[in-house]
């Protein structure tokens, strides 16, 4: 889903462990309050479970666990961001999400090496908007589970 440049610049911002991440808005199907998630036995640990989204059963992924942060219980601010990427539909659990912003090409730059330790390998770029630092997620990397699945099995 690499679309034209003009679309590339709108993002949904979400909060995770005190950091602001951005997800390309074209990939986002919908955002929901976090309700009942059904745990799936023997699934990888970052898969918190499954939920219904428009009649489909989709996995709900804890981005906290995916990125190696401490898990914490969901609250009223927690959101499930359902994204559609490379023919898959997956829900990402975040601490909160509200904003929708544009980030121009010039505001984006490659992620610094130093970030590689934590969520760094899931980042496509970082951006500075009005003195805020925003990490732009690389959905391909977030959804590429083959490595993690091998570990889990």
């Amino acid at each position: 889903m690499t679309a034209s440049q003009s679309f590339d610049s709108t993002f949904i911002l979400c909060e995770l462990a005190g950091t602001t991440y951005a997800i390309r808005s074209q990939a986002v199907r919908q955002m929901e309050m976090v309700e009942q998630i059904t745990p799936v036995p023997n699934a990888p640990d970052f898969v918190e479970g499954v939920v219904f989204s428009r009649g489909q059963v989709v996995p709900a992924i804890s981005l906290r666990r995916r990125f190696g942060f401490e898990p914490r219980p969901h609250d009223l601010k927690s959101r499930l961001i359902v994204i559609s990427h490379a023919n898959r539909i997956v829900g990402l659990l975040v601490d909160g999400a509200r904003e929708f912003i544009s980030i121009s090409e010039e505001q984006q730059q490659d992620p610094p090496e130093a970030l590689a330790a934590m969520s760094g390998r899931y980042l496509q770029a970082i951006a500075r908007v009005n003195e805020r630092l925003i990490l732009i997620l690389d959905l391909e990397a977030v959804l590429n589970f083959s490595a993690s699945l091998d570990e889990a099995v």
């Binding site: 023997n42 699934a43 990888p44 499954v50 489909q56 059963v57 989709v58 898959r88 699945l149």
Partner: peptide, 11 residues
Amino acid sequence: RALNDPLIRVP
């Protein structure tokens, strides 16, 4: 309903 995503296809 089917489970389509590889993440949730568990034995």
